[in-house]
Amino acid sequence: MPNNKKMYDKGKVVAGLCIFVVLITFPFWFNLGKAAPAPEPKLSDKAKAAKECVMPKATMKTEHMQILNEWRDTVVRDAKRIYTNPSGKKFNMSLSNTCLDCHVEKAEFCDKCHNYASVTPYCWECHIDPKEAK
């Protein structure tokens, strides 16, 4: 019937559509009234003074996990501990001693972005944050 406006099983269909709309719009009502500003990782004075990390900031932001991964492999497999960055500066390849030396507070630096992006790196299953350990 082309012009039939009657809906069959109206109750069930409308209930189903309501569930659909609620599920689809979940992010909108879940975050209602909440502001979620991007985190600002806190740089320690030492880090500020150093100006540049192992690599430029943009590279560090997106590639630091791969750099750390390479460091780990180089140290563990090849027993090489010295890393030379493109501008010739030498670093001791160590998460606890080099990275955390500048970025003193894990909670204020690493965790801020990781929590925001819901990333749980397994670094800390072996390494310790000297501050948290105390």
Partner: peptide, 8 residues
């Protein structure tokens, strides 16, 4: 979906 629900 409503269009389908109208088909007997």
């Amino acid at each position: 979906v409503i269009d389908w629900a109208r088909s007997p």
